[in-house]
Amino acid sequence: MPQISQLLESLLKVDGIQAAALIGTDGFVIEQKMNKPNIDMETVGAIVIGGLQSSESIGTELEVGKIEQSMVEYENGILLSRMLSDGNAILTIVAGQNAMLGNIRYQVGKMMPEIQKQLEN
């Protein structure tokens, strides 16, 4: 059974992904892997938590349920954050502007059960 670091490493092989991190709900990085060394995932983790809390508030106000995934497209890249099913961690992906978003979402979805299983161990 692959470890979390191995699972994140395999995500880096997906075309366009520059960084992958598992972030606790406290904003601290549990594990991270990067192809682009100038990304400060500790700072990204803290900011992602704030953004997800705001999105959660919007969901409550609109009565549409809990947040499952957030994606923000920037001029030169994409930030995708997906909550684990137990809500105790967030998988965050940093991808380049030309990344195939559908493939990234597919690969992340495929990997989520294994990441969840590893966190429970």
Results as ranks from 00 to 15, higher is better:
residue 72 V to S: 11
residue 72 V to A: 11
residue 73 E to T: 13
residue 73 E to I: 05
residue 73 E to V: 08
residue 74 Y to T: 08
residue 74 Y to C: 05
residue 74 Y to S: 07
residue 74 Y to M: 12
residue 75 E to R: 06
residue 75 E to D: 10
residue 75 E to C: 01
residue 76 N to T: 07
residue 76 N to C: 06
residue 76 N to E: 06
residue 77 G to F: 00
residue 77 G to W: 01
residue 77 G to P: 00
residue 77 G to L: 04
residue 77 G to M: 05
residue 77 G to N: 02
residue 77 G to S: 01
residue 78 I to V: 05
residue 80 L to H: 11
residue 80 L to P: 12
residue 80 L to I: 15
residue 80 L to A: 10
residue 81 S to I: 06
residue 81 S to E: 13
residue 81 S to L: 06
residue 82 R to G: 00
residue 82 R to K: 14
residue 82 R to P: 01
residue 82 R to S: 03
residue 83 M to K: 10
residue 83 M to I: 05
residue 84 L to N: 01
residue 84 L to A: 00
residue 84 L to T: 12
residue 84 L to D: 00
residue 85 S to C: 05
residue 85 S to V: 09
residue 85 S to R: 01
residue 86 D to W: 00
residue 87 G to S: 14
residue 87 G to K: 14
residue 87 G to L: 11
residue 87 G to W: 00
residue 87 G to D: 09
residue 88 N to E: 09
residue 88 N to P: 00
residue 89 A to K: 13
residue 90 I to N: 06
residue 90 I to G: 05
residue 90 I to A: 03
residue 90 I to V: 15
residue 90 I to Y: 08
residue 91 L to E: 01
residue 91 L to A: 00
residue 91 L to Q: 01
residue 91 L to Y: 07
residue 92 T to Y: 07
residue 92 T to P: 07
residue 93 I to L: 09
residue 93 I to D: 07
residue 94 V to I: 15
residue 94 V to A: 13
residue 95 A to P: 04
residue 95 A to R: 10
residue 95 A to Y: 02
residue 96 G to Q: 07
residue 96 G to H: 09
residue 97 Q to K: 15
residue 97 Q to S: 13
residue 97 Q to N: 13
residue 97 Q to I: 13
residue 97 Q to M: 14
residue 98 N to C: 13
residue 99 A to F: 10
residue 99 A to Q: 10
residue 99 A to K: 11
residue 99 A to G: 13
residue 99 A to E: 09
residue 99 A to M: 11
residue 100 M to V: 14
residue 101 L to A: 10
residue 101 L to H: 05
residue 101 L to M: 13
residue 101 L to K: 13
residue 102 G to T: 14
residue 102 G to H: 12
residue 102 G to A: 15
residue 102 G to M: 14
residue 102 G to D: 12
residue 103 N to H: 04
residue 103 N to K: 11
residue 103 N to D: 02
residue 104 I to M: 04
residue 104 I to W: 04
residue 104 I to V: 13
residue 105 R to V: 05
residue 106 Y to G: 02
residue 106 Y to H: 08
residue 106 Y to N: 04
residue 106 Y to S: 05
residue 106 Y to I: 07
residue 106 Y to Q: 03
residue 107 Q to T: 07
residue 107 Q to C: 03
residue 107 Q to W: 01
residue 108 V to G: 02
residue 108 V to F: 06
residue 108 V to S: 01
residue 108 V to Y: 07
residue 109 G to I: 10
residue 109 G to E: 13
residue 110 K to E: 08
residue 110 K to M: 04
residue 111 M to T: 15
residue 111 M to L: 15
residue 111 M to K: 15
residue 111 M to C: 09
residue 112 M to Q: 08
residue 112 M to W: 11
residue 112 M to G: 03
residue 112 M to I: 15
residue 113 P to S: 07
residue 113 P to G: 02
residue 113 P to N: 10
residue 113 P to L: 08
residue 114 E to C: 04
residue 114 E to D: 15
residue 114 E to I: 12
